[in-house]
Design a protein around this nucleic acid. Structure first.
Lengths: 194, 194, 194, 194
DNA sequence: AATGAATGAGAGTTCATTCAT
DNA sequence: TATGAATGAACTCTCATTCAT
């Protein structure tokens, strides 16, 4: 953000601009959305955008942060408890797939970010992996899962869920079948059990 | 491709245009590369581009196909042999990481395609997963690896290698350490052994 | 018009753009006139054109409306008085030919519109015919001219003046001779007298 | 035409090009039709067009001539017989409206010509008026119709039929009603009877 | 007579960004 | 803070036309 608003009105304006851009980037994608579109949807003058944000890329950055926060709040990575059985649920996959179903278009913003604001995309996954690996580390110490480099494991699991999310939810929109879910559980269980 | 050249000269021209765009998209990315840039680098009039290709997106499509072909030829997914020990080498990860090291910028084109020509990106991974799962299926039938839905397993493995490739090769450029490689082998072995 | 200006300065700019395009379309025709030509003549950046107008066709629309207004103001179709003698003067032909002599190039814009913005051309003549037929209807009711479908009569008279205008004024630039004017008066008188 | 073919095959090629352009100009209009479109539809190589025709305008010229010929053949202006009753039929209007119904799109080419090849458009109507006025002159000499400048009368009648054709056939596509036809007959009869 | 390849001027249009108020 | 006006670089794409064979 370029200028941090000091008044209530200013904060509301920024809020409106962020909301509008989140919606438009979701619907039409980053490239197809112009600043004018955003300003119009937010109900403010075109030029005001540049009072608060440096550029189109600047706001993309902002959005990635917000999505990151939302997703982490939803996944509750830090309170992971892997005792007893190990499965998708425990590893956070279930929550992630759920989130993805409900935020298909939001995820699209992330993908846009990968191209148009790569640092932000990197930051998104590194932050995620960081929290994730903390949870995994704890589980390792408590003997709940196999002991390996936690960060490596975090990226491994994120990689799996990311690709399965793309394939089964975003591309084909059918979700995983009962059988596939069982198989996935099996694979996770074998990989992770202590 | 819009127009298929009929003479040797035409074929050479197309070759030059494809080569130039592959290089430029790699270096500067899709958005920052203009048709004029491509034409100039290829040494032809920019109008000629549109004689052979419908649009900028059209050639991106073409490039994705070429990259797919190259990568598959390199990975030799169909001749996978998983007997004896299961490890990165056997699963094709080693070759993929190798390819990635040598084609960092090329992989960037794929990422661009995800945004600018999503169908092509989808096609890329579906084709890859298709071949991959055929190899995996064979290995399952021969009792070399665990029996699960081969397609699911293919996407799972692709997901892992994709994300690790991003993290350890493209973003941080350091590759995986000895220790990490061992851990990864361990995880794969546990997940896949029959 | 795409965007209606809100300040005096804005209104002046629009005025300049309209004036410039009216002149250029008149002189060089619609096709041969580029947006840059217009902007240059108007003394503004060419991008500003698209701030106020959606496209080249959009401004053609605007011009047709303006020409329509001008012409109607000049012809005063509603205050037609056909009492006493019926002749060119009474029917509005004289004024039309006069207008045409003085606005040769403007009429060309209309012809361009017939090809490039047909709806606008249609609208032009329908509006004209509408007003005209109201005047004719009144004259019929007062027994000043023959009673027929007023709209049909309006188009008939417009057709005559249009074609004679093309032939005698725009193409050959000589105007009608005394003899021809007499004959035309005769024809009109015979056709229209009660 | 630029080069007049000397062989049978050449004549056929020209025939194909003319046919293709007539169809395309009818459907899409002059501007929206490219030489490539024409060549493709005609089934010949792009470059060959320029062997036979100087330019896009050159072939428009050709088409106008052909349309002129077709229309005149259909209207049979020279064999007009105005004896007995004078009405639309006698004056050639009926045939013209018929032709127009069946050649809506062809007439559109003429309108295109007015903008893109004005000389050809002029020539079209002057030729038509010339033939027409010859027929009218004969009728005048035989005392069948009022005696006025035949050329003026020709343009007058052409003007009427042109505008009514636009309004009732091309724009609104409904044709004239019984009542309107009667009124039109009345007007013509009053104007023309000796 | 015919083909296929190549040219390049130029067009309309978009849009991020800046500026004056 | 906010508005409306203005800028102009840059882009994709079209297409009439020419040329070599």
């Amino acid at each position: 953000m370029y200028y941090v608003p000091k008044t209530e009105k200013g904060r509301e304006t920024v809020e409106k601009i962020i909301k509008a851009s989140m919606e438009l980037f979701s619907e039409k994608g980053f490239t197809a959305t112009s600043i004018s579109d955003i300003a119009e949807k937010a109900g403010v003058a075109h030029g005001l955008f540049y009072f608060y944000f440096k550029s189109k890329y600047d706001i993309l950055d902002e959005l990635v942060k917000i999505i990151n926060k939302n997703m982490r709040r939803y996944l509750k990575l830090n309170t992971m408890n892997l005792s007893n059985r190990i499965d998708m649920e425990k590893v956070g996959f279930t929550k992630f797939f759920e989130w993805l179903e409900n935020n298909r278009n939001i995820y699209r913003i992330l993908i846009d970010a990968q191209v148009h604001k790569p640092e932000a995309y990197m930051w998104f996954y590194e932050t995620l992996a960081d929290r994730y690996s903390q949870g995994l580390k704890k589980a390792m110490l408590e003997g709940q899962i196999v002991k390996v480099n936690p960060e490596l494991l975090a990226y491994t699991l994120i990689g799996i869920s990311h690709m399965l999310g793309l394939r089964y939810i975003l591309w084909h929109r059918e979700g995983l079948t009962e059988k596939e879910l069982n198989d996935l559980n099996l694979l996770l269980e074998r990989m992770l059990r202590p």
